[in-house]
Write a protein that binds this DNA or RNA. Structure first.
Length: 588
RNA sequence: GGGGAUGUAGCUCAGUUGGUUAGAGUGACGGCCUGUCACGUCGUAGGUCGCGAGUUCGAGUCUCGUCAUCCCCGCCA
């Protein structure tokens, strides 16, 4: 006989009179003396079990503890008139118990499975298997499953081949720090866990797998954030014989389908596109949040010669002035404006000038400095009207823009300019191919296999920093969902790019192993994208933290509180690997 | 590596200018109760105030250090 004939979420009035067997967790026991109710729960729902004092099971029910696992055999019956619970799907019926069996006993729980939100992050992570019994995490896991199936089904329909690539790979010094795995068979050598399957998917293109997709784990040993875990899942895809437009079209349809399959929402295509520099200039971010305004304006011309000393000095130093129109915020109190200025400093801005706009013109520090013409011009550029509050900051262009970008997001949250359930995607396209690293070297902004846009190839040797890449990021609601590019498939162009960043072909071959060789054996034009699956699910779930959509996530210092990883390992294990610790100061 | 927040009963929290025996809700345990559904009701147990120093007649409260969890900057091709 099977453990259960039905789940705890499916019995309704249609089942009245049926003899059923249910199994699940004891969610609650309501002992009324001569009458006992038990809510039996599984992931499908809850069903009320009832036993009269005269019933042989009543004594057993009274002895139950919360979360004991049991099996009940009984008959589905309608609840007495007026006793239905309209809150729950099974609320019109109950199961009159004939017999019951305890399947497993539960000790008192360290967190309340029944109450929502009443547990610290620490306790939830330590007892993740209990947290899972609560609807929030369970629903997120179910949503994640749906999203996985949607993406797989879509790619299968489109003729994509799912190929698994290795987890034990060659370490490359580029990019994020690698997780390292020492080899026992080859003492002194290590594998790395992949930061992404980049090199392999390009090899697959050379191999003729012209449409590849993989939903796979990636590993990066960097500090965590609310949208970053050391191991995370990517939707990785690559296509041969395509240009950017093909990748855009494919990715957009995948996202459209994903949002439809999970949330039943329709996304309009094509998705808007922003040039990388425009995104930075207007939103102070390469992953702009388009759900609200507060756009940034460049105001060098409007402030030049206006006599505002701090900004004049900045302009004289080749710095810039930028502003944001906080529409309708002109009535903020003196104190609120000071708080705003403090907030700006905490976002890395050197300072913030706040100026209310009234029907008389500009207030605050600019009231006396700006004449009618200058005022009119400023209001025109900032699209401002009386009742607004203007925010200004001056300094080095990029740092002011990114600072204002962070402030912009904070203010939108604080002022509740974002409505829930809105999904605003956008492509951010054609970023620079190279950037200058901290030590002054030219480095690839994306990765060294990214193709420059055709029009810029001639500048590779002369003005490398002006070369734009055939690369693109997909952003959603202020988060980077993923990025990709059209790759270089010509060994000659690849060589020029390496030369531009100061590495010769031998060195490149040493660092990137097989890929360069592969490109020499007939590589089709190809490109692709990799999307952060956890982030996508986080946003679909309406969560603000990636941990909420990961079954067993890590803490800020990359610990797993449930199993205690990472731990020291035996000397024996280390000896086999030929590895010895030095200078260990803590955690030993 | 840097900045910020938090840490008090199993859980979620309160605890005043430093002052007697550290409280509440919930959960746990025991009793009563025949229509509950956050059942009600009566009772009982439950504390290394994260840890370690220091200041003080006296520290949950003040100072320093340290650990843990969270958020941000750096970092994340």
């Amino acid at each position: 006989m099977s453990y259960r004939t039905h789940t705890c979420g499916e019995l309704t009035v249609r089942n009245i009179g049926e003899r059923v067997t249910l199994a699940g967790w004891t969610a609650r026991v309501r002992d009324l003396g001569g009458l006992v109710f038990v809510d039996l729960r599984d992931r499908y729902g809850k069903t009320q079990i009832v036993a009269l004092m005269s019933s042989p099971t009543a004594e057993f029910f009274k002895s139950l503890h919360n979360e004991d696992v049991m099996q009940v055999i009984g008959t589905v019956q309608a609840r007495p008139t007026g006793m239905a619970n309209r809150q729950m799907p099974t609320g019109e019926i109950e199961v009159a118990a004939e017999s019951a069996a305890l399947l497993s006993q539960a000790a008192p729980l360290p967190l309340g499975v029944e109450d929502e939100e009443e547990a610290s992050e620490e306790v939830r992570l330590r007892y993740r298997y209990l947290d899972m019994r609560r609807p929030r995490l369970m629903n997120n896991l179910l949503l994640r499953h749906k999203a996985l199936q949607s993406v797989r089904r879509f790619h299968d329909e489109q003729g994509f081949v799912e190929v698994e690539t290795p987890f034990l790979i060659r370490s490359t010094p580029e990019g994020a720090r690698d997780y390292i795995v020492p080899s026992r068979v080859q003492p002194g050598c290590c594998y790395a866990l992949p930061q992404s399957p980049q090199l392999y998917k390009q090899a697959l293109m050379v191999g003729g797998v012209d449409r590849y997709c993989q939903i796979t784990r990636c590993f990066r040993d960097e500090d965590l954030r609310r949208d970053r875990q050391p191991e995370f899942t990517q939707i990785d895809l690559e296509m041969a014989f395509v240009d950017e437009e093909d990748v855009f079209a494919h990715t957009e349809r995948m996202m459209q389908r994903l949002v439809k399959d999970t949330l039943s929402l329709d996304i309009d295509l094509p998705l808007p596109r922003l040039n990388y520099f425009d995104a930075l200039a207007r939103f102070g971010s390469d992953a702009p949040d388009l759900r609200f305004g507060l756009e940034i304006s460049r105001l060098d011309a409007q402030f030049r010669g206006a006599g505002f000393r701090a900004f004049d000095e900045a302009l004289a130093n080749d710095f810039s002035v930028f502003g944001i129109n906080a529409a309708g915020k002109g009535e903020l109190s003196r104190r609120e404006r000071v708080e705003l200025e403090e907030r700006a400093k905490s976002e890395g801005l050197p300072g913030l000038l706040t100026v209310p706009v009234s029907s008389q013109g500009l207030g605050g520090a600019l009231g006396k400095l700006f004449d009618a013409t200058r005022t009119a011009e400023l209001l025109r550029v900032m699209e401002s009207k009386p009742g607004d509050l203007l925010l200004f900051a001056a300094g080095e262009e990029r740092s002011i823009l990114t600072g204002l970008g962070r402030l912009r997001r904070r203010l939108a949250e604080q002022w509740r300019l974002i409505s829930k359930g809105e999904y605003k995607f956008c492509w951010v396209i054609n970023p620079p191919l190279f950037e200058v690293s901290a030590d002054g070297e030219l480095t690839p902004a994306h990765h060294p296999f990214t193709s420059p846009i055709a029009a810029d190839i001639d500048k590779l040797e002369t003005e490398p920093l002006k070369v734009c890449a055939k690369a693109y990021d997909l952003a959603l609601n202020g988060f980077e969902l993923g990025s990709g590019s059209i790759r270089i498939h010509s060994p000659r162009l690849q060589e020029r790019v390496f030369k531009a960043i100061g590495i010769n072909i031998e060195e490149a071959r040493h660092r990137f192993g097989f890929l360069l060789e592969a490109l020499g054996y007939g590589a089709p034009p190809h490109g692709g994208i990799a999307l952060g699956f956890d982030r996508i699910v986080m946003l679909l779930a309406g969560e603000t933290n990636i941990r909420e959509v990961i079954a067993f996530p890590k803490t800020n210092v990359a610990s797993s509180l449930m199993d205690g990883a990472p731990t020291p390992v035996d000397d024996q294990q280390m000896a086999e690997l030929g590895v010895k610790w030095i200078n260990i100061s803590k955690n030993t």
